[in-house]
Amino acid sequence: MEERYPAYTQVKAFKPFHGRFDPCPPIGIKYYRTPPNLYMNFQPPNLEQFSPYEALMRGTLWKPLYDYYENPYRERKS
């Protein structure tokens, strides 16, 4: 049986409930991100590291724990 949704994705989405008598327009789909450390049971030894300068710029020393943020609401230029 094939899985419909993958188990590991950092970008999640949901659609808030909108009732028939709700005076506000529907919001649509809302997106949120989950950090990569949620999917690691423990920190394995000898993880690949950024250089000290690059670690300060990215906010983490370990490459597998770095998460690039991309705004899902911004329209992409093709």
Score class of each variant (00 low, 15 high):
Pro26Asp: 07
Phe42Lys: 07
Glu48His: 10
Pro25Met: 07
Glu3Tyr: 12
Pro64Met: 02
Pro25Thr: 01
Phe17Asn: 05
Leu47Glu: 13
Leu61Val: 05
Phe42Asn: 09
Lys12Phe: 11
Lys12Glu: 08
Met1Gly: 13
Ala55Glu: 09
Asn41Tyr: 14
Arg74Gln: 13
Tyr31Ser: 06
Cys24Ile: 00
Gln10Val: 00
Asp22Gln: 10
Gly59Trp: 15
Leu56Glu: 15
Pro35Asp: 06
Leu65Arg: 03
Tyr39Ala: 07
Tyr39Arg: 10
Asp67Glu: 13
Asn37Ser: 02
Asn41Ser: 14
Pro72Asp: 03
Gln10Phe: 15
Phe17Ala: 06
Tyr66Pro: 05
Thr9Cys: 06
Ile27Asp: 09
Leu56Pro: 00
Cys24Trp: 13
Ala7Val: 06
Tyr39Lys: 08
Glu3His: 11
Pro45Ile: 00
Trp62Met: 09
Pro72Arg: 06
Asn37Val: 03
Gly19Gln: 08
Pro6Lys: 09
Met57Gly: 06
Pro52Phe: 10
Tyr32Glu: 01
Phe14Thr: 01
Met1Ile: 04
Glu75Leu: 04
Leu61Ser: 09
Ala55Lys: 12
Gln49Glu: 15
Phe50Pro: 06
Phe42Glu: 06
Thr9Lys: 11
Tyr8Val: 05
Asp67Ile: 00
Pro64Val: 01
Arg58Asp: 01
Tyr68Gln: 11
Lys77Pro: 00
Ile27Val: 13
Gln49Pro: 02
Glu54Gly: 01
Glu48Gly: 01
Ala7Lys: 14
Arg4Ile: 02
Ala7Gly: 03
Tyr68Val: 00
Ala7Leu: 14
Pro16Val: 01
Asn71Trp: 09
Phe17Tyr: 13
Pro52Thr: 06
Met40Cys: 12
Tyr32Ile: 00
Tyr5Glu: 12
Lys63Glu: 03
Arg20Trp: 11
Arg76Met: 10
Tyr68His: 12
Lys63Thr: 00
Pro52Ala: 10
Pro36His: 13
Lys77Asn: 11
Asn37Gly: 00
Leu38Phe: 15
Trp62His: 15
Arg76Pro: 00
Phe42Gly: 04
Gly59Arg: 13
Asn41His: 14
Leu47Phe: 01
Lys30Tyr: 05
Leu38Ala: 02
Lys15Gly: 01
Ile27Pro: 06
Asp67Trp: 02
Thr60Lys: 13
Arg20Met: 07
Tyr39Asn: 10
Glu54Val: 04
Glu75Met: 09
Pro16Ala: 02
Arg76Val: 07
Pro26Gln: 08
Thr34Ala: 08
Tyr69Asn: 05
Leu65Tyr: 15
Leu47Ala: 10
Glu3Thr: 01
Arg33Ala: 10
Gly59Tyr: 14
Asp22Tyr: 05
Tyr5Thr: 03
Pro52Asn: 12
His18Thr: 04
Pro26Lys: 09
Thr34Ser: 05
Leu56Trp: 14
Tyr73Arg: 06
Met40Ala: 06
Tyr73Pro: 01
Gly19Ala: 13
Met57Pro: 00
